[in-house]
Design a protein around this nucleic acid. Structure first.
Lengths: 345, 345
DNA sequence: TTTACTCACTTAAACGTTTAAGTGAAAGGG
DNA sequence: CCCTTTCACTTAAACGTTTAAGTGAGTAAA
């Protein structure tokens, strides 16, 4: 059944008048090949349009030069705010080193591990990039146990020592709160994720840090927990708005632009003007953030840097090198737009 | 260098007391293997945790069971509205048939073809899915010339006979215009892409069809050409708004939600109320469309269907089957929201 | 002059499968 | 009872590389 593939190392060897080993050495620039022979080999290869067959090479070298990445389908009306940039960044970084990215669909059930297992044991990929990690993430546990190369975008169980890149959400939220303080706000609320969210708690720590630093005490009522949905955030902001005017926050930071959108919509629905009657800062800097009304201040994650770094770390691991830094936190930037309102000094 | 891979067909054969050929036949469920032997082989394989090595299989069968997909990085502030869903859909469909998706970064220069050539001649992929096609797309031309399997999401040169799936943009815009007619509008404008955009012209045909059907004549001044940017669309809508009130459109359809966002912002900036002073319909149904203010009516592309169909067609081509339908147009849906305004009957 | 070493290759094995061809036993037909 | 066919396997070649080991010529050292 296997049809002859177009042009192989044998054809090049014949044409150049050398053995196939010489061709291989020439291509892998071993130094025991004379310049003259190397030129002859390259000329023959070019004339025939030869390209080494990656399948044969993979079998021989026991590698695939492919990195696996999967993400979970999000519920309807949700979306991964910057996934395209993330995948593109990984592909860029991988291709610079002769690797490629295989994107696979994570299982929808509770058995998140088995697609990874499949790709791993069949030799399809040399390593994994993980994202959307959570504490006690079974994927991390299994990969650690197997000693299989991977790098996570996101932290997990602090007792586990595994390589990751993450965005310093604490600093992100800290910057957001500080920004509102700088504008003169003294009562800043937060719509935070439930306490079981690791990422959420890192970010929430930034809220507390900002208060501590400025020497104020945040009223516990200014912290409202809500999930990543427009509906929940509408309810949450309502809770805040129903506080008595002199104890009601004048600004609010949120865990995602999605939540910020819910806040904006709810404020409009209550006849209020977002940005004027309530300062709002989002998180993610989704592409539309700058175009909505009012344009949304938001914490922007350095996605390109994250993706490049994660891939570079993974390639180091695959090559058996020791990482200089196994855990890296990258600082996000605050993008200030109209939803912050103006100084109320 | 090549370390022994974990457990191979030989180990299974030894454990089951058969030859490796028998193991292979058992796994590829050939019918010349007795049930009893098959059970023994499976038991041995399960006990050892055997999984066929995909690299060896690939070499032997001269295939990779990988489909390549690339997209171009968009300029800053632009984004591929539904890319994550598209890739996810492809991965889903491919995995159901034992294939995987390799996402690679298209070249940023003018040599769009070479990354494809590389993956093709090295045997990395068995076929390609293309998107963001344009007329005389060099990728399509080269792939056709080589006879290499591919399916495009999007049409191209009408003289070329190649397999594609596309969304029927004409019907999409037709539905949008008709919808505004139904609300009582009689002067509906369009912010259309420049005439060199193939996709744009298909959609523009829907605009003309709607007018023809209702028996009205669209004033040429109601067609304003603009690129896919917020800035250009702001200028474009301004042009429309500067027409005398009795000859100014009362509603406008656009080629993308991005353009619609620019329109909304500009109208606010002019002190007007989008949805009330001007009905607006977008295209793409980006995730935020339902959350912005006013929520945006939009033409939604059936991305999941497109991605699944494209993959299925590609797999048929790879298997050498004849396609029942080489060219498929899928109908988009109009999602009606607040930006359409209410009936002005 | 012999010996040892370097150089620039070649030979051949291996990577783990798939699959065409071969084989021996059992069954069936005359 | 012999011949053919079927069944259920096994043997062995092949897929296209990489790379350890081998080789013969030329050079340098003793």
């Amino acid at each position: 059944m296997p049809r002859k593939s177009s042009v192989t190392i044998k054809d090049v060897a014949r044409k150049a008048g050398v053995s196939i080993a010489t061709v291989s050495y020439a291509f892998n620039n071993a130094d025991s090949i004379s310049d003259e022979t190397r030129q002859r080999v390259f000329a023959a290869a070019a004339a025939l349009g030869y390209r080494p067959n990656v399948r044969a090479r993979n079998l021989r070298t026991q590698e695939s030069r492919i990195l696996g990445y999967s993400w979970h389908p999000l519920p309807k009306d949700h979306w991964h705010p910057v996934l395209d940039r993330f995948i593109y960044g990984m592909a860029e970084a991988a291709e610079a080193e002769g690797y490629h990215i295989l994107t696979f669909a994570g299982s929808t059930g509770d058995d998140v591990w088995s697609p990874y297992e499949e790709l791993l044991t069949s030799g399809r990929v040399d390593g994994f990039i993980l994202s959307d990690t959570n504490e006690n993430d079974p994927r991390i546990r299994c990969l650690l146990d197997r000693g299989f190369p991977f790098v996570a975008f996101g932290r997990a169980n602090e007792a586990w020592d595994f390589p990751y890149v993450d965005v310093d959400g604490e600093t992100g939220i800290y910057k957001a709160v500080k920004h509102l303080f700088d504008l003169g706000h003294r009562r800043v609320g937060i719509l935070a994720w439930p306490e079981d969210s690791l990422t959420g708690e890192y970010r929430y720590a930034g809220y507390k840090r900002a208060y501590k630093e400025i020497g104020l005490v945040a009223d516990p009522q200014w912290t409202v927990r809500c999930l990543n949905s427009v509906d929940e955030s509408a309810t949450a902001i309502e809770t805040l708005m129903h506080l008595p005017p002199d104890r009601r926050p004048t600004g609010v930071v949120t865990m995602s632009d999605m939540i910020a959108l819910g806040v904006i919509n709810k404020l409009y629905a209550m006849g209020l003007q977002p940005g004027r009657d309530m300062a709002i800062v989002g998180f993610d800097d989704i592409p539309t953030a700058q175009y909505i009304h009012p344009s949304l201040s938001s914490v922007r994650q350095p996605i390109k840097a994250v993706s490049h770094l994660a891939v570079e770390m993974l390639l180091s691991l695959i090559r058996g090198e020791k990482l200089k830094r196994r855990q890296v936190l990258l600082e996000p930037d605050l993008i200030v737009r109209a939803s912050s309102g103006v100084s109320i000094g």
